[in-house]
Nucleic acid binder design. Structure first.
Lengths: 124, 124
DNA sequence: CTTGACATACGAATTAATTAGTACTATACA
DNA sequence: TGTATAGTACTAATTAATTCGTATGTCAAG
């Protein structure tokens, strides 16, 4: 089942990235990973992961006392959804002006482009 | 002067797009444009534009009784900032995986790519 | 058995974003 | 002249996102 909002909030995304890295994660796992970056309460992480579960981004099962969470969808699918939403909102749905911006602001270089061209060759 | 947050909230962006289109706009102009899409109060638009001004996205001058707003920065600059912020947040700062997603989810086609390659040729 | 460590459940405070109401002012014009 | 109109100023309500505290339960070690 597709999540209703294609977009994760910044904090939700931060947590999802960590869960995707791990495939399986407890609240404690994520809590400890987040702690390395910034001060945060254990229950905050718990709340966020519960929210992600009710929104359909995470699935949980109980293992002993704790819940073990895992992603409900592959990372690529969710990221593509976020990208699409961004393009809709910022570029009115067309990806081409995005590319123009990337090139003009020098956020991509020629060698990246070449890599992509090769990818397209493989796909078609 | 660079705005502190490179990123506009969704509602702020919606208004900025309309101001960029017009170069000059009063609250009423934007209010009427927004009304065509959805119900909204005049004062809501006024508040948002005041916020955009204090955040440094809009400049205003008084003309007769009303303020006339205009963009403080070119659209391309602000959009590039948003794009950079998005890439940082979602793709950890590197644009290449973004391109991969665009290609794999078929959001760009080959002809778009060719256009870009030509652009790069022109730039260098 | 009691206690400490660690987990969830539940409720709620805080902060950010969005929306809008009311009071007041200046101006055009009947 | 007074009244409707169109504007700002100021305040605040609402909704969404983020953060965390307290209560409670379970289990393992002493």
């Amino acid at each position: 089942m597709r999540p209703k909002h294609a977009t994760l909030t910044p904090q939700e995304l931060e947590i999802m990235k960590l869960v995707w890295q791990r495939e399986n994660a407890t609240v404690r796992d994520i809590y400890e990973a987040l702690l390395e970056k910034r001060k945060i309460a254990y229950t905050t992480v718990m709340t966020m992961m519960k929210i992600l579960e009710t929104k359909g981004y995470l699935k949980k099962r109980r293992l002993d006392r704790a819940f073990v969470y895992r992603p409900a969808h592959p990372k690529s699918q969710i990221i593509s959804g976020m990208l699409r939403e961004f393009i809709d909102r910022v570029f009115n749905g067309s990806a081409e002006p995005l590319l123009v911006h990337l090139v003009q602001s020098r956020q991509i270089r020629e060698k990246d482009l070449e890599k992509i061209v090769r990818m397209i060759e493989e796909i078609k």
